[in-house]
Write a protein that binds this DNA or RNA. Structure first.
Lengths: 204, 204
DNA sequence: TTGTTTGATAAACAGTGTTTAGTATATTTG
DNA sequence: CAAATATACTAAACACTGTTTATCAAACAA
């Protein structure tokens, strides 16, 4: 009976419409400017309808986050394909920062906002794409540690160290703190700092 | 004529009351839970009155920020007094992270929120305490570079590198991302990562 | 043709930041 | 001292926000 299936499909279609409207509004008005009522207005349904498809606003942000990781993956493809581990780390770092600088709203959603992170159990479920990326980085670190026989034995510590550095850099750029301490050279400053970071770890 | 002065003083007193109420509410309900109406209720004035003393909510957050830097300075006193430059950097890093972890709301106000950073000119005015700290770190970096004759020549790049690392670490901790990739060892993980960071720069 | 389930919504609740028009008190001036 | 002005304050409104509840009409099943 294809009738139940059609219902199912229509339900999924509206859910997708909500998500696409949410994405559109977030990209236009930022994460702060995204509201249930704006979504409802955009898809020409009432605000209450949205709550038939999503538990609350956080759940929408959650699902948007996954779209963000898809976008980020595109920045990473070249880096992931690199054969040399150390060079791969360089490329991942560059791609990470480029993604962060060029997609502030996506980035905040994925790495900064603690809104979608209320319950840690549910978190690790929905953030598996983030975890996969971290694990990939950690594995690359292991390779690099072995090849260069670095002192740091724990690849997950090194991965966390690298992540902290680029995350901090992106966040400082987003909140204009880099402009404050050193005006009008954000771009070059970021590149130089990333380079200095990686050199101090691998190139000594 | 001490009359005008008394008026002036009373005006300053109410302004201080507003600020103290704002601080109290922020510490109790977080930055998100701080509202003009809650402040008004606390000081037993109408919400509109607050706008006679502050341009808008951002201005309140701005002035709170300065209180935050006073608090942070207390964490730093021991580090600032250290004679050895490299050791001073270690202590500053530790103090920075301790402050960040123990005072999430203050930290977000000072380093994360871009709310009080709307106009960059006004920014550099009100963020002078932050700039002073950065300059102090940069000077310490210069000392360290000279003493260890490190390859990195630009002390401001090195300072930005250090800042990015600890900032990133604190932000990842705040948004529970560290818990996600490596559950139940946040504290030790942060200490190990900070150590690894500093070792890779200075101790090679 | 009933009865029931489903999908959508209007309206309300409890908040938010901010503005405006108005009032009561205090100070200054004639 | 009385009238005029300046000051300090606020009630009420505006335009929003996320979310819930009661209602209602249409589609489906018996």
């Amino acid at each position: 009976m294809g009738l139940a299936e059609r219902k199912e499909r229509e339900k999924a279609e509206l859910k997708e419409m909500i998500l696409q409207a949410a994405k559109k509004i977030m990209l236009k008005h930022g994460q702060e400017g995204l509201s249930i009522r704006k979504i409802a207005n955009d898809i020409e349904y009432s605000p209450a309808t949205i709550y038939l498809y999503f538990k609350d606003k956080d759940e929408i942000l959650h699902e948007l986050m996954e779209l963000g990781f898809l976008k980020m993956n595109k920045y990473m493809t070249a880096a992931f394909a690199e054969g040399d581990a150390v060079q791969r780390i360089y490329l991942i770092g560059e791609a990470y920062i480029n993604f962060g600088l060029e997609n502030k709203d996506w980035y905040d959603l994925m790495f900064s906002s603690d809104k979608p992170m209320k319950h840690i159990e549910k978190c690790r479920e929905d953030w598996d794409q983030g975890m996969m990326m971290f694990d990939f980085l950690a594995n690359t670190c292991k390779e690099a540690i072995d090849r260069l026989s670095l002192k740091s034995q724990d690849e997950r510590i090194l991965a966390l160290q690298l992540w902290s550095c680029v995350h901090g850099l992106v966040m400082l750029a987003h909140s204009e703190r880099i402009e404050i301490v050193e005006p009008n050279q954000k771009e070059t400053l970021i590149k130089k700092t990333l380079d200095s970071m990686l050199v101090s770890i691998f190139d000594k």
